[in-house]
Design a binder for these strands. Structure first.
Length: 907
RNA sequence: GGGCAGUUGGCGCAGUUGGUAGCGCACCACUUUGACAUAGUGGGGGUCACUGGUUCGAAUCCAGUACUGCCCACCA
């Protein structure tokens, strides 16, 4: 490993933190020195996760960035905890998407070329060229986020070893008879010219029309066979498909129609005669209660056609144009389907068959990739039989071997798997894994892992490979183990499989997660991951889905540019995985966390300044000041919670805890006091304060590192280090800080709380009465409780200091002579008097006191009422009653103090 | 049609086993003292969507209603 240590980045003297250079520098340092390379020490525990492979055509979006941050936080945290970590990165060849991009490029050429002109082989070559050029773009974008994935183990779903895994899996399934050829209606994209799965189809509410068309009874069934005579009215949204009709179906229970079952009707605009059949599928409530049956162009009609053994004439071709065959009247042949619809409707109207047209909004299926309206299309496809494969995959989730987080998503998965249908795994594309099925001249259909030279059954050398490629999800289904070398029993597979977690978006639970689970169980014999983290979807600030085409998508790279990667990551951490299922994006949040980074930066500057020439040494608790012990206590509590929170994937709380600790406790209170301590001290107590300052700040950086890797690395490098960390090349290899119970100190906590409240009360009075900030104020504090008196007496220098309440002279006694013209506040057993002399505004003081009195009185009444209720005293647990009684006593005494002060004021 | 979320001050959210509503941003006022004005200090602001129930007591438990959003599903 190269030992070129990055040098410190010069920051502008203004005090503001500028993330840009810092981030570029450390990204370079980490990646150039292979810091994230996989290292395996058999004595250490293992942590692994696989990055959901982005499409090579993809660009980093908010979802990627959130997901990347979640995985990186865990990976960095585990690395710091001494685990062997593998965060497996890589990309997906993305069949349709890549093919579309390359086709689009070809179209831009002069003259434009189609892929068919190029031919399959040449086209695939172009795809490879494209992939070499741009295929890792998105991973490089990921780097900007500070991700620590194993760059040395980059995988691609078309790498030779990966392809080997795919064909091994395919052949196993094929030889078990689970892969079969089926001829049925599937979703077809007339633009991509391929079948797509149900999951690759988007349904959108679209305004359209419901056409009611009269199908007249034939002459032998009492009709005239034309529009003028009696008939049955069917309702359809797709009149152009009528030429493929083979029947009219009604519900046999429908009183209006049941007597016409068995009759014949004439298909309008043609001479064809169709039977009226009875089928339960027909909804009596919908439309006219009569349904035209078009088996080749509607999945439901296909089912009906199968039940009634009806033919299935095809009238729309794969391009979405009306077929030129005997079923389609010549005037419509070759017309595009939507143009044909218009023409058909016109002619129906003209000839009197069109009964009514109603506005109708319904879900229309669109191709997820190109937004073309999907055409249900009768075609031959390869299917994977799912029922047997699903069973064990259902069990591992039912038995909690694979656990969804949040839990509710387990039912999304289970509902899908329990009703799973056979999987159409073939696609009519060129870019992808060609289906490894060869058919010989004698019709023997076999699957081969490698291109065969002869038929396995008859040794014929005349073989032809299936032209289709596999659904892209077939290859990504194998991701968790194919990336680790399966089917070989590699050491990596042994070490890192099953992976620890999988983190992804809920929209691909069925598409991807379910398939990894069943393939993992099937091929490796074990679950692919223990925990599935499903993160929220990031929406626009008004709750809309972000989409590139709508132009409302926020580009995370822009946000990183503007606010820094650490600020973005911090926001992603607060989003976490355990909260709502959707999160709206508000840019102010990034600004807030940018300010947090700035705050840390400036705190770091102060700490460094106070630790000039500091040599690390251990803390001597017995010599520590109260604030020292207090911050150690708070810090220890923070670490305890962090351990729990990160363990439970509670990133939201972990981030909030760190934010609160760093800003409120450390910066606002401890640093203010420590600053003063170090300025005043004679060097004895100051030494311990330095130790504590170092201990807490250095630890805080490590604690923050998984969330904010850049700024913590930058500052950590500048700090001196304890011996065991001196040689580390990066904070990422330093141990995650652990809580030491010895630093817990509840007493210090209570004492500091009293002091803080006291300081706040004095500040409140000062501001309420407009005491000049620069002026010192006289303060008298009467403390009835003995230990509180001691605490406050010992803390007098903190209370009096310019940073805090700026008091002089300060009197703290068990009993003081209450000054007449004074503002008053009560904190616990302490009554604070600030004599204001001429400054005092009797009216204002009285008003303020009366306000307080009212608030306190309200509490008194509420508590008294509760305690007066005999039911409460009878039924509430004794400790609760006692607690309320105690609360009442406390509130009453505050009321008395206020009353006394009011009396004095009115004097 | 089925399922899942959410509804708490202007905005974004916390509120574990029911016991006097918290935080951040924004807002108002004051302050440029050597970590930070991307700051400090103080302050104002909420009948916890609605209805009913359980309970001595409900933001919290139960039932229902209303909106908002997501997922799944073969109503033409």
């Amino acid at each position: 490993m190269s030992q070129v240590k990055a040098t410190m980045t010069e920051q502008p003297a203004t005090g503001a933190y500028s993330p840009k250079d810092v981030e570029a520098k450390w990204t370079g340092y980490w990646f150039e020195n292979d810091m994230f390379a996989t290292r395996v020490d058999p004595d250490r525990p293992n942590f692994s996760c696989a990055l959901p492979p982005p499409n090579i055509t993809g660009n980093l979006h908010m979802g990627h960035a959130l997901n990347g941050t979640i995985q990186d936080m865990l990976t960095r945290w585990k690395r710091m905890q001494g685990y062997n970590v593998l965060w497996q990165p890589g990309t997906d060849h993305a069949g349709i998407a890549t093919q579309m991009v390359v086709e689009r490029e070809l179209k831009k050429q002069v003259p434009p070329i189609s892929r068919h002109q190029l031919g399959r082989e040449e086209f695939i070559k172009r795809c490879w060229v494209w992939r070499e050029e741009y295929g890792n773009n998105i991973l490089n974008q990921y780097k900007r986020l500070g991700v620590s994935f194993a760059w040395d183990r980059l995988q691609f779903t078309m790498d030779p070893d990966y392809v080997k895994a795919i064909y091994r899996a395919f052949v196993i399934l094929f030889d078990e008879g689970k892969i079969y050829r089926g001829n049925r209606v599937t979703n077809w994209c007339p633009r991509c010219l391929t079948s797509v799965s149900d999951l690759e189809v988007e349904h959108e509410e679209t305004k359209g029309s419901l056409y009611e068309i009269k199908y007249p009874f034939s002459k032998e069934d009492g009709g005239t066979g034309d529009a003028g005579g009696p008939g049955v009215v069917v309702a359809t949204t797709r009149p152009e498909s009528m030429f493929g009709d083979v029947a009219v179906a009604v519900n046999p229970k429908d009183d209006r129609h049941k007597n016409i079952v068995g009759k014949k009707v004439v298909l309008p605009l043609t001479d064809r005669v169709l039977p009226v059949i009875g089928d339960q599928y027909v909804e009596t409530e919908f439309g006219t209660g009569a349904l035209k049956v078009t088996p080749a162009h509607d999945a439901n009609d296909w089912e009906i056609g199968q039940r009634h053994k009806l033919p299935s004439p095809v009238v729309i071709d794969k391009h979405g144009k009306m077929f030129a065959n005997e079923f389609v009247p010549t005037q419509f042949q070759g017309q595009e389907r939507f143009a044909a619809r218009k023409l058909v409707v016109e002619e129906l109207k003209e000839k009197g068959f069109l009964v009514e047209v109603k506005d109708y909004t319904h879900g229309v299926a669109y191709c997820e990739r190109c937004h073309t309206v999907i055409e249900p299309y009768l075609s031959e496809q390869w299917y994977l039989q799912m029922s047997e494969l699903a069973q064990p995959a259902i069990e591992v989730v039912e038995k909690n071997q694979v656990q969804f987080i949040p839990e509710r998503y387990a039912s999304t998965y289970l509902d899908w798997m329990r009703n799973v249908r056979d999987w159409n795994i073939s696609r009519q594309l060129w870019w992808g894994h060609r289906i490894p099925i060869w058919t010989c001249e004698n019709g023997h259909v076999k699957a081969y892992e490698q291109t065969p030279s002869q038929c396995r059954q008859c040794s014929s050398t005349k073989l032809e490979q299936d032209p289709d490629v596999l659904d892209t999800w077939f290859s990504s289904a194998l991701w968790p183990f194919a990336t680790l070398g399966w089917p070989e029993k590699t050491p990596l597979l042994k070490t890192f499989y099953p992976t620890t977690i999988l983190s992804t978006a809920r929209e691909i639970i069925n598409l991807w997660v379910s398939r990894m689970i069943f393939t993992g169980v099937k091929f490796v014999g074990t679950i692919p991951f223990k925990h599935v983290l499903i993160h929220p979807v990031i929406q626009t600030k008004d709750g809309k889905r972000m989409s590139k085409s709508k132009g409302n998508a926020v580009d995370p790279l822009d946000m990183i540019e503007k606010y820094g990667a650490d600020a973005n990551r911090f926001w992603f951490a607060t989003v976490g995985v355990k909260g709502d299922q959707d999160v709206r994006f508000h840019e102010d949040k990034l600004d807030e966390y940018k300010k947090f980074a700035n705050k840390l930066w400036n705190a770091g500057k102060l700490v460094l300044d106070k630790l000039k020439d500091y040599e690390v040494q251990s803390i001597d608790l017995s010599k520590c000041t109260l604030p020292d012990r207090w911050i150690l206590h708070r810090y220890t509590r923070l670490l305890e919670s962090l351990q729990d929170q990160l363990q439970n994937y509670d990133f939201t709380e972990a981030a909030q805890g760190l934010y609160e600790f760093a800003w409120d406790y450390f910066c606002d209170w401890y640093l203010e006091i420590a600053k003063q301590e170090l300025a005043n001290s004679d060097g004895k107590s100051g030494q311990q304060t330095q130790n504590v300052l170092y201990y807490v700040f250095e630890g805080l950086l490590r604690a923050l590192h998984p969330i904010m890797p850049f700024i913590t690395e930058e500052m950590w490098e500048k700090l001196p280090h304890a011996e065991f960390m001196v040689d580390l090349e990066s904070i990422m290899f330093a141990p995650y800080p652990r809580a030491h119970a010895g630093y817990l100190d509840e007493q210090a906590e209570q004492k500091m709380e009293l002091i803080i409240k006291t300081i706040r009360a004095i500040r409140n009075i000062r501001q309420t009465f407009n005491v000049d900030r620069k002026a010192e104020a006289e303060v008298l504090i009467e403390v009835s409780d003995k230990s509180e008196l001691e605490t406050l007496s010992k803390a007098r220098s903190y209370i009096a200091s310019d940073n805090n309440a700026r008091v002089n002279p300060l009197t703290i006694e068990a009993k003081v002579t209450a000054p007449k013209m004074a503002a008053t506040a009560v904190v616990s057993s302490a009554t604070i008097f600030v004599p204001l002399g001429k400054l005092i505004d009797v009216e204002k003081t009285g008003g303020k006191l009366n306000e307080q009195r009212e608030a306190v009185l309200k509490e008194v009444n509420k508590l008294a009422q509760m305690l007066d209720n005999p039911d409460f005293r009878k039924r509430a647990p004794a400790d609760k009653v006692a607690a309320q009684q105690e609360a009442l006593r406390e509130v009453k005494s505050r009321l008395e103090t206020i009353d006394a002060q009011l009396k004095l004021l009115q004097g």
